[in-house]
Amino acid sequence: MIFTTNHTYAILRFSQARASIMSDLDEMHAFAAVMTSGSLTHSARHLGVSKSTLSRRIQQLETRLGQPLMRRQSNRLLPTEAGSVFHDYCLRILDLADQGQRALEELREEISGELTLQVHDALGRSWIAGAIDDFMQRHPGVHVSLMIRENLPEHFAPQSVVIWFGDTGETGLRQETLALLSRGLYAHPDYLARHGHPAHPHELESHDWIDLLGEAEHGLVLRHPRQGQVDVRPPGSRLRVNRLVLQSDAIARGQGLGVMPNWMAERREAAHPGQLERCLDDWQVSPSPVSLLYAHGHQPRKVSALLEFLRSACPAEWQLGTRRRAS
């Protein structure tokens, strides 16, 4: 019985609070409407209430604030000094209330419909292919078009999200860094047995090189915690590839050295032990970002759900502490 009484009291208090908030908003809507038109008659017609109701709401607002907000001049209502000051705050409050209402309405929306997810080739099979199954199981009403890409799309469709590996440049989209993936130098143990282990970055110039997208053509920067920075220009690569999987295959076949994300190299080594060996462990190569790209502005519920899922589904090996949200 006590529980029932307390529960009923809580419901009554909530209902009273909600009624008070709605009453306040009605008063502010009335004030904002009259500020726009300068007329009780026009504003009452616009809001769908009687002229007397509109006048009473403004009077109640003035009583609550303790100052007159409007004065009559000829056939128009004009703001007092207090009314001019309060008007800006009134509009902000009404806008926030509208945003809150839209957010609550979105929570009632079923997450369903078409989504397009465009993913860099390096992250397709290694991450997204498995992760997206989990997303679709959580949201059975969603249909996803998963597209693997080697280049950024020139045209960005609505309801679309892009996951990219590496630099993106200026795209006109909102960019959010999911992770900064550390990278290292790798070779097959047999290659190192034939050509020797490089002891310093300058020795890389005498090794065969497996280049990804011509990245090393303009030089490679390596940093050491004590020895500082060294700029290296590897020899022209006899094999240039445009996909990370082709590069790792070539390195694993013993064709030369190359720069790979440590995460990807460790996964390959776990699946195929003895294929890759890291070189110059103490020297750091600049990391590669993994980015989310999506349209600016308010996102539909299904897009927001996908973005939140992708943020939480990053592999633990990506050093999630490096993640930062878009500003």
Rank of each mutant, 00 (worst) to 15 (best):
D121Q: 05
D121L: 09
A122D: 14
L123C: 04
G124P: 02
R125Q: 06
R125V: 04
W127M: 12
A129L: 07
A131T: 13
I132W: 14
I132S: 05
I132L: 11
D133F: 04
D133M: 03
D134P: 05
M136K: 13
M136S: 13
Q137N: 07
R138A: 09
R138D: 12
H139Y: 15
H139V: 02
P140A: 00
G141A: 05
G141E: 06
V142S: 11
V142D: 08
H143P: 00
V144I: 15
V144M: 01
L146Q: 12
I148Y: 06
I148C: 05
R149N: 01
R149T: 15
R149Q: 13
E150P: 08
L152C: 03
L152A: 03
L152G: 05
P153S: 03
P153Q: 07
H155L: 02
A157Y: 10
A157Q: 14
V162M: 03
V162Y: 07
V162N: 11
I163P: 04
W164A: 13
W164I: 06
W164V: 11
G166E: 02
G166L: 05
D167P: 04
T168Q: 06
T168H: 15
G169K: 01
E170V: 14
T171V: 14
G172W: 11
L173H: 15
L173S: 03
R174I: 12
R174N: 07
R174E: 06
Q175I: 13
E176M: 09
T177C: 12
A179R: 07
L180C: 09
L180T: 13
S182Y: 11
S182W: 10
S182P: 11
R183E: 04
G184L: 03
Y186Q: 02
H188S: 08
H188L: 00
D190Y: 15
Y191Q: 01
A193K: 10
H195K: 08
G196L: 07
G196C: 03
P198W: 04
P201W: 11
P201G: 01
P201H: 10
H202N: 14
E203Y: 12
E203C: 05
E203Q: 15
L204E: 02
L204Q: 09
L204T: 08
L204C: 04
L204D: 00
E205F: 07
E205Y: 03
S206Q: 10
W209V: 06
I210P: 08
I210C: 14
D211S: 12
D211Y: 10
D211H: 11
L212N: 04
L213Q: 14
L213H: 07
G214Q: 02
G214F: 14
A216R: 07
A216V: 05
E217R: 15
E217A: 13
E217F: 04
E217M: 06
G219S: 02
L220M: 08
V221I: 13
L222D: 10
L222W: 12
L222N: 12
R223M: 06
H224A: 00
R226A: 09
Q227H: 15
G228D: 01
Q229V: 13
Q229G: 00
Q229M: 04
V230H: 05
D231S: 14
V232D: 01
V232C: 09
V232Q: 10
P234S: 00
P234K: 02
S237D: 02
S237P: 11
V241A: 02
